[in-house]
Design a binder for these strands. Structure first.
Lengths: 244, 244
DNA sequence: ATCATCCAGTGATCCGATCACTTTTAGAAT
DNA sequence: ATTCTAAAAGTGATCGGATCACTGGATGAT
């Protein structure tokens, strides 16, 4: 019998082509924003039909590895070398999920802040300071690209660990989707700013323990607000005795 | 001039169809493993060409939201409701990245173990015990589906926080890819088992502090091995002359 | 009852044509 | 010479249909 060691088609042709496209990008030394050859040319290059090639491109586009711009071209996306990401498919997130999300952040972000206090570079301190003004993501109706990164993202990046930064970024990306629907969290913007400032100073001064506890308090406060919104939803408006 | 508030095509048709497919799945109450209508029928349903529909399906398949089986049908995948995931595109990971990965786990997993000690259910304890025998992923040449989840995955699930479980799962998924290339890490399987057992007991007994420290030690040991392999690669075969 | 075969259902790929958007180019107006 | 406008070229997006390849169930012989 034998498993037909050669020539066995485990995966679809379009999947194979997708891998070849990635390899092509790597081999060509292309990086984010660079353009690829036209689709018809790529199809010829890989010896497949334009439709098949197109499916491959869509697969890569779905994960942010590529960007297809109608009438313009195919470009390398931002997520090609990324390891952890938010599910691009996920739509709006329920308030319950938002609470779970914040609990997860409460579990891991303090430690990340402590790491940042130890590993942060001078540039990190500078970026962190700039991020203070951006604060928690301003309520943009349209999620415009390349908006300045928010404080927590920069903080995670300062930890010096790319993976941790990607994790926080993923959580905040999901969170952002959430905020478009429910504007509850982050009610007190002034308090937010003060807490961020305190964390900034602790990280700048290289105090891991203080950075840890301040971040913990900050997220605990946010969690309180979110949980309050949640229970307010479950027991609406009310004095109480409300069922539903 | 105005921004033509209506009818403006921000995203491609295939992208819109992808969203419609997700909505269709949700509205139909389908869950993982359930089958969708045939592609031609779906194309008719959404009023697009089969090629366009196919691109939409590929986008969803790329993130594990769907599964297309040649000759069989289209099925709901495992990642439709997931929030955080490993980049499906990423190929092999360098040893340097593996070290970064383990450092990230060292930063967050102890806290997760502590949470598990507090929140674990009786069923979690049972699953955790079973996972002890599977130990750290056996070196499978072929990543077969539905293999029993490894200890760390089950541990994270016992934390009661879905997001944290997804994060750990993502890290281990990336890691698995890594192990296919480099078989260095997890050298001492017996020691691994003993440390897992100790963590299991601490979680079972509801001791968060002990669970924390044991997990921390366990990962620190793994990190040591990985860093050793890394420096051995940089300074091959050497007696010492170790720097750094 | 068992097994090999056939066949209908369904996804995968191909081909070619046409539409839609973007960018560049050429020309006109100033 | 500069600026604006319009045409044209380049490139992705969608369409329509035909054909191939795989799977799973039905068929039928043993």
């Amino acid at each position: 019998m034998a498993f037909s060691p050669e020539g066995l088609h485990r995966e679809s042709l379009s999947q194979q082509v997708a891998d070849q496209v990635v390899e092509f990008i790597r081999r060509s030394g292309l990086s984010e924003g660079d353009s690829l050859p036209p689709t018809r040319e790529l199809a010829r290059l890989f010896g497949v039909n334009t439709g098949t090639l197109r499916e491959a491109l869509r697969q890569l586009e779905a994960t942010g590895g590529l960007s297809l711009r109608h009438g313009s071209g195919v470009y390398v996306g931002p997520n090609l070398d990324r390891l952890v990401m938010a599910n691009p498919t996920s739509v709006t997130v329920s308030l319950e999920t938002a609470v779970v999300l914040i609990r997860a952040r409460l579990a891991i972000e303090p430690r990340i802040a402590a790491l940042a206090a130890v590993h942060r570079s001078d540039q990190d301190v500078r970026l962190l300071r700039e991020a203070l003004s951006v604060a928690s993501t301003p309520p943009d109706p349209v999620p415009h690209k390349s908006s300045k990164p928010n404080f927590h993202r920069v903080l995670a990046r300062a930890s010096g660990n790319q993976i941790l930064a990607e994790i926080i970024d993923s959580l905040l990306t999901v969170h952002r989707v959430e905020q478009h629907t429910i504007r509850v969290v982050y009610s007190d913007r002034k308090k937010d700013f003060e807490q961020h400032s305190a964390i900034y100073e602790a990280v700048r001064d290289g105090d891991p323990d203080l950075s840890f506890s301040l971040t913990e308090e900050h997220l605990a406060d946010i969690l309180t607000v979110a949980e309050g919104a949640l229970s307010a939803k479950d027991h609406p408006a009310g004095v109480m005795a409300s069922r539903e």
